[in-house]
């Protein structure tokens, strides 16, 4: 298994790590059993993502995708950010090893959860357990995360 240079760059030098003082929205996906949790906080101003921070528990792919998604959407409108998919993130990183495609590629989902929580009134409580990799790759895990990437 080999990571692209971009993945290694975002893993070794992750952008936008941390938390925000007064987030407008918070999203979290994954669970510790799977070995991947992504937590994203956003500050929204005039319908734009003015600031974004993440914290991630997981492998290099999980950290790199989190970092990349924050970089992609910072300054973008919510509508633009909602169009970002896990696949967009993986492509921006010059791809991910196949085994990492479903478990560790949830950063866009975390972002969408954060936007959803903002739209619902910015409840920082919004912590949703979504995505699981306990079972076989092709089972509920992958389907639940809607990232069946054609190859």
């Amino acid at each position: 298994m080999q990571y692209s240079q971009k993945v290694m760059d975002h893993f070794m030098n992750p952008r936008n790590v941390g938390t925000l003082e007064n987030p407008s929205g918070v999203g979290e996906v994954g669970n510790p059993t799977c070995g991947d949790i992504m937590h994203i906080e956003i500050v929204v101003k005039d319908d734009r993502i003015e600031d974004i921070k993440f914290r991630t528990f997981g492998c290099a792919a999980a950290i790199a995708t989190s970092s990349m998604v924050t970089e992609i959407v910072k300054g973008k409108t919510l509508e633009e950010a909602e169009k970002i998919t896990n696949r967009t993130v993986a492509e921006a990183l010059d791809g991910l090893p196949p085994v990492k495609m479903h478990c560790s590629n949830l950063a866009a989902d975390a972002l969408h959860e954060a936007i959803k929580s903002y739209r619902q009134g910015g409840a920082p409580e919004a912590s949703i357990e979504k995505g699981c990799c306990q079972s076989e790759p092709d089972s509920a895990c992958q389907q639940g995360m809607e990232i069946n990437l054609p190859k």
Partner: peptide, 21 residues
């Protein structure tokens, strides 16, 4: 799990009673 390229952590670590996380 990630280091071994599978979805579960090592069977040995689970057998000694460690939680997944």
């Amino acid at each position: 799990a990630c280091a071994s390229g599978s979805l579960d952590p090592s069977h040995v670590l689970l057998a000694i009673g460690l939680p997944h996380e």
